[in-house]
Design a binder for these strands. Structure first.
Length: 322
RNA sequence: CGCGGGGUAGAGCAGUGGCAGCUCGUCAGGCUCAUAACCUGAAGGCCGUUGGUUCGAAUCCAACCCCCGCAA
């Protein structure tokens, strides 16, 4: 037994974006853990003006007086990090680099990863988006021991979470981040005190998802191929990036002809329409898009036209075909 | 100087040389059991900025600022 309050665990944190920060913050504020340092990606050019910007994790760490280290995918630098920080535990959330095995095996309490799916389902980079796209009713958080393979390590705990009808990649992610930030400390405590037995994954049941599945290219709506139900899920999965989109028909007379339309929020709407799939029309103060299913349209609640700001259905209709 | 779209009332949009418009919202009043309903009325603009052309510019020309999409 180890009383972590009396003897906090020297922990090294790996992460990059805002969701990593929430996890890092939870551990940093937890007296049972001492964050000896964080490893994150180097500053990158961001936005239209390509301003060099540190990762969110780096920002938080510098602000909180935590030492920051960049490994830059360099094996020597991973070794250097171990020499400097001598971690008893490594915690990883959304780091984005392949981590060498010797690094993972160094800490006595192993390297622990937080993954947003019920492993072995959806191993890989975009499990939340994949679960929404597939129309799953439930997903989860897997706390697992990192191994050389992609999300193949033994699982300490799975926390289940329902996927709500209106959940987007963003709303669901926020919920999972909050839950995992809240629970992680206790789970790690139990793990360190040997109250948890790691469970091997049944690799025969493994499924995978890849970053390239969530791309601008894959966010394009193919009106003649996709069912309305799928498009609705696509819209929710692509929030906040890259956002489901399509090119509006060139033949229409209005000013939006040929422009890119981005869909931020849609819902299925029962209405019979003979219009060509992907045509914008309005009825009873509602903005609708026809689909390949003549009896189901998509009601558009939040949208953005190329060159314009993101607006609501109501705002759009105020200026549409008047 | 990467490519392109745009800046007109609080919001969304018309308006290509001749009095500043539409829909929504806001405010006041009316109608209704009721309303994101309907009726009546009102307020609200340096038409992104600066200069130029013209009898006259939101509109044509030049420069600049800002917003957005694409690309990276």
């Amino acid at each position: 037994m180890r009383n972590l309050i009396e003897k906090p665990v020297n922990t090294l944190f790996l992460g990059t974006d805002w969701e990593s920060v929430e996890t890092l913050k939870a551990l940093h504020q937890d007296p049972r853990f001492t964050i000896v340092g964080v490893i994150t990606t180097i500053d990158k050019p961001v936005g239209r003006k390509q301003i060099m910007t540190p990762s969110k994790v780096k920002e938080y760490a510098l602000h909180s007086g935590i030492e920051v280290f960049h490994t830059e995918k360099n094996l020597d630098r991973y070794q250097m990090a171990l020499d400097i920080f001598k971690p008893e535990l490594i915690v990883c959330k959304a780091f984005g680099e392949i981590v060498p095995e010797f690094f993972l095996n160094y800490p006595i309490y192993k390297a622990i990863n937080v993954h947003f799916s019920k492993l072995p389902k959806y191993r890989g980079a975009v499990p939340i988006q994949k679960a929404i796209l597939e129309g799953d009713k439930e997903t989860g958080i897997s706390i697992m021991i990192m191994s050389a393979g992609l999300d193949e390590g033994d699982v300490l705990k799975i926390i289940k979470e329902p996927i709500l009808e209106k959940d987007t990649n963003q709303t669901l992610r926020e919920r999972l981040v909050n839950i995992s930030a809240k629970e992680l400390g206790n789970i790690l405590d139990d793990w360190i005190n040997e109250k948890i037995t790691p469970v091997k994954q049944d690799s025969s049941k493994a499924t995978y998802c890849w970053q390239k599945d969530i791309s601008k290219e894959n966010a394009e709506i193919k009106w003649n191929d996709m069912e309305p139900e799928y498009i609705e899920r696509l819209v929710r999965a692509m929030i906040p990036w890259p956002v489901a989109w399509c090119k509006l028909d060139m033949n229409t007379e209005n000013i939006y002809s040929g422009k890119i339309l981005k869909l931020f929020e849609v819902e299925l709407f029962k209405n019979t329409s003979e219009l060509k799939p992907g045509t914008l029309y309005h009825k009873d103060n509602m903005l609708l898009l026809s689909t390949k299913n003549k009896d189901i349209s998509l009601r558009v609640l939040q949208l953005q036209i190329e060159g314009k700001n993101k607006i609501s259905e109501r705002d759009f209709l105020n200026g549409f075909e008047r």
